[in-house]
Design a protein around this nucleic acid. Sequence first.
DNA 1: GTGGCGAAGTTAGCGTTGCTCACATAAGTT
DNA 2: AACTTATGTGAGCAACGCTAACTTCGCCAC
Lengths: 233, 233
Amino acid sequence: MAKKIPPPPSGAAADPSDPAPGAGGEGRFGCAFSRRRNRYHHGDLAQALVTAVRTLVERDGVEKLSISGACRMAGVSSAAPYKHFRDRADILRALCREGFGELREAMATAAAAIPAPGPDRLAALGKAYLAYAEANPGLFGVMFGMKRELHDPEDTRTHEIAHANMLIVIAEVGAALGEDPPGEEAHRLACVLWTFVHGAATLTLDGDYEAAGVEVDTHAMIDLAAHRLVPAR
Amino acid sequence: MAKKIPPPPSGAAADPSDPAPGAGGEGRFGCAFSRRRNRYHHGDLAQALVTAVRTLVERDGVEKLSISGACRMAGVSSAAPYKHFRDRADILRALCREGFGELREAMATAAAAIPAPGPDRLAALGKAYLAYAEANPGLFGVMFGMKRELHDPEDTRTHEIAHANMLIVIAEVGAALGEDPPGEEAHRLACVLWTFVHGAATLTLDGDYEAAGVEVDTHAMIDLAAHRLVPAR
DNA sequence: GTGGCGAAGTTAGCGTTGCTCACATAAGTT
DNA sequence: AACTTATGTGAGCAACGCTAACTTCGCCAC
């Protein structure tokens, strides 16, 4: 059958199905997605796909995400991903890992900015969580909203990262309570705080506050929760 | 071109793509989905489709939901829904309305069971919310997790129902605080409580507590939050 | 009853998706 | 230079959402 189009779509690779007005100002080469020059092999297709999926998820929402679209953006055929990932869910799992890592960093940074342990530092932690969600709404939705479809019992890495995030909170609550090492009370309060902040993030992202017709000041809410829930020492 | 199969798949309509082990014990006729007898017209296809979608969502999760599957379950062709609904999202919106109505009833009932206003009644409200979510995990996910894709500016009904739910909570918090009519403080605290309870629901349903490796007693958490957040009078 | 009309079904088919196959190419090792 | 192996390609499958054109049947006027 020979070869109809030997080195495929030449160079311009950023054509994610619809025009995407002006979207990324990537040049002809060197953009994060496209293959290097006109090479047959991509270089790092796995990461390029994850990045493409991420930008598509942020641009159009999870529900409109298609792997085909990401392939178009990366400038490869729609069969290429399966050399690197088992299936669609596997790609999303890789994206999740990226996200959990970033979230953890963001929280650690925020905590370090507050000198002493206590409600204020916990509030800062919560605000960092919320800020990350608002800055990466699509990714956040994938990270926390697709557990059922992405769940893979063999994938321990993702769990470990998520657990590490939890440990940060528990440690901080323990420090605020003066428990060292953090005990049962710290554990319980950490869960309550995470639950609250996560609720704020999801309700914000999903537009549920608006839908319910209420106006909220999420930062004020976090401050209030942190100070009322964590008893003063 | 004549008629190949005049009254289509005779009677047995419960064949939603895969066997569905034992699933619904519906008889040959009279099940909630299938058309009445072998009639060409269904009777109430709109409701039957919503019901079918609901059971599929609960059985397989939102991500695996297909309208075709619901059609198979209702015993109609895959083009039939579009006589009643604009598109897929329209069907899901109808399902959401059903859910919000039920949720509201559940909360109202739970509140009525506690004699006096106060933290205990608020906790009961929250537990009812959580219980509804746990009893209808798929539906709950659709109701709150698909705002972006289901959003329709012309659909005011759904918003009204969601707002009505919020008003219940605000009124109860107002009563607990002794504010009548409920003021700004009641409003803010109601948002905080909803946020917390909603967070508990989503983290539970998505399996995030498990993923993070923590064990939680959600009822105890709700009690704690209600009592610490709502100041004693 | 009869006839016509419109609502609510039908089949056929389009374009897209996720994924698999057999094959082509390039990179690296010997 | 030859062989091996990782990584790409195109063709093609079944399923999906949705449209178009046609058929069936309930209902209402007469």
